[in-house]
Simulated scan of single mutants.
Amino acid sequence: MAVMTHTQNRPSVDYRDLTPATQQRLDQILERADNTSDAGEYNSLMLGVAALAGIDIAYGGEVLRCSCTCVCPAVFDNADPDARTIEESCGFNLPIRQCPPCADRHPAPDLD
């Protein structure tokens, strides 16, 4: 009998709570996603990041590390309406965004 584990439905996780091996793998996958030119690969990589982090996203969704200058450890679902764009990502795939708590605590010009 196969046992299937399900992703926890969390909107964000603390990067520091992940094991070092999981942190390394998450960073590798995010870097690959940031540089791919294939939309299908990007979507697959985002699903991989979501599974590693334990965040449930829909196909086509994104999981990001917070880009706030406070060096926030949040890994979050980019679909959260309270996340905020910090700046354009010029030449890369991953948006440069603040997690919702940082968007409240450290307001930046909103580029959304």
Score class of each variant (00 low, 15 high):
residue 1 M to Q: 12
residue 2 A to Q: 06
residue 2 A to G: 02
residue 2 A to K: 11
residue 3 V to M: 13
residue 4 M to R: 13
residue 5 T to A: 13
residue 6 H to V: 10
residue 7 T to D: 01
residue 7 T to R: 09
residue 8 Q to K: 13
residue 9 N to P: 00
residue 9 N to T: 08
residue 11 P to H: 11
residue 12 S to N: 04
residue 12 S to R: 12
residue 15 Y to R: 15
residue 16 R to N: 09
residue 16 R to V: 04
residue 16 R to C: 08
residue 18 L to M: 15
residue 19 T to N: 10
residue 21 A to I: 02
residue 25 R to W: 01
residue 28 Q to L: 12
residue 28 Q to N: 13
residue 28 Q to W: 04
residue 31 E to G: 14
residue 31 E to A: 15
residue 31 E to F: 13
residue 32 R to I: 01
residue 33 A to K: 03
residue 33 A to D: 01
residue 35 N to L: 09
residue 35 N to F: 08
residue 35 N to C: 10
residue 35 N to W: 09
residue 36 T to Q: 05
residue 36 T to V: 11
residue 37 S to L: 15
residue 40 G to T: 08
residue 40 G to L: 06
residue 41 E to M: 04
residue 41 E to T: 10
residue 42 Y to I: 01
residue 42 Y to L: 06
residue 43 N to I: 09
residue 45 L to N: 00
residue 46 M to G: 00
residue 46 M to S: 00
residue 47 L to Q: 06
residue 47 L to K: 01
residue 48 G to E: 11
residue 48 G to C: 07
residue 49 V to E: 00
residue 50 A to L: 02
residue 51 A to M: 03
residue 52 L to M: 11
residue 54 G to L: 09
residue 55 I to G: 01
residue 58 A to P: 02
residue 60 G to P: 05
residue 63 V to M: 00
residue 63 V to Y: 00
residue 65 R to Y: 03
residue 66 C to D: 01
residue 68 C to H: 05
residue 68 C to W: 01
residue 69 T to Y: 15
residue 70 C to K: 06
residue 71 V to R: 14
residue 74 A to C: 07
residue 74 A to I: 00
residue 75 V to R: 08
residue 76 F to A: 01
residue 78 N to F: 11
residue 78 N to Y: 11
residue 79 A to N: 12
residue 79 A to R: 13
residue 81 P to F: 05
residue 85 T to C: 11
residue 85 T to I: 14
residue 86 I to V: 13
residue 86 I to H: 07
residue 86 I to E: 06
residue 87 E to M: 14
residue 89 S to Y: 10
residue 90 C to E: 12
residue 91 G to Y: 04
residue 92 F to L: 13
residue 92 F to G: 14
residue 92 F to C: 14
residue 93 N to P: 07
residue 94 L to Y: 09
residue 94 L to A: 05
residue 96 I to A: 12
residue 98 Q to L: 04
residue 99 C to A: 07
residue 100 P to C: 09
residue 100 P to A: 13
residue 101 P to V: 09
residue 101 P to F: 07
residue 104 D to Q: 14
residue 106 H to Q: 07
residue 106 H to A: 06
residue 108 A to S: 04
residue 108 A to P: 00
residue 109 P to E: 14
residue 109 P to I: 10
residue 111 L to R: 14
residue 111 L to C: 06
residue 111 L to T: 11
